[in-house]
């Protein structure tokens, strides 16, 4: 059962950081909060879609695909996920 993350915001952010680092094939310390996924880390569009899919599956927060354009840095991912995590996530 996937459960909405009920821990602290920083626990949620740690998990997001882990997912993003894995999908971008980076060590976590290589990934800054403000680095641009595509420009700075050469991220692939499919990797970013996978980040969203994993956030839904593993953290229970459903983010619509069209929000991808607003999620170009880790900081922006935190913001968007935070926005969708506050409400009841889709079908959760």
């Amino acid at each position: 059962m996937t459960q909405g993350v009920t821990g602290t915001p920083s626990a949620l952010q740690d998990k997001i950081r882990e997912i993003v680092a894995e999908e971008l094939e980076l060590d976590q310390d290589e990934l800054s909060d403000t680095g641009h996924f595509v420009d700075d880390y050469d991220a692939d569009s499919l990797s970013l879609i996978t980040v969203i899919a994993r956030i839904e599956k593993e953290l229970g927060v459903a983010v619509p695909r069209d929000q991808l354009t607003e999620m170009a840095t880790l900081e922006q991912v935190f913001a968007v996920v935070g926005q969708y995590a506050t409400g009841e996530s889709r079908g959760a």
């Binding site: 879609i49 899919a53 839904e56």
Partner: peptide, 14 residues
């Protein structure tokens, strides 16, 4: 087997 049937890994789908 996933909680929701569509939850396949997009990067592995190809």
């Amino acid at each position: 087997v996933q909680e929701r049937p569509y939850q396949v890994n997009p990067s592995q789908f190809p």
